[in-house]
Amino acid sequence: MQEISRKGFGNVLNCITGDSLSHTPACSSIFSQAVHPTAGVQLEYDFAPTQR
């Protein structure tokens, strides 16, 4: 059995900051695509739009 024997790897890992997806651009883009009508996302309806 072997293990990491050189110290200091914690300093490398500490650079990783992405704990909260809700604050990352990736998630923001998911939200914007889902709700923004100009984002080019085609919404599918189970019913026909009501005609005036």
């Binding site: 490398v12 650079c15 990783i16 900051t17 992405g18 997806l21 604050h23 990352t24 651009p25 990736a26």
Partner: peptide, 14 residues
């Protein structure tokens, strides 16, 4: 980049 809050400087430091 998703693991670095989208910050290029953070992944560079990594």
């Amino acid at each position: 980049l998703d693991y670095f809050d989208g910050e290029h400087e953070n992944i560079k430091m990594f």
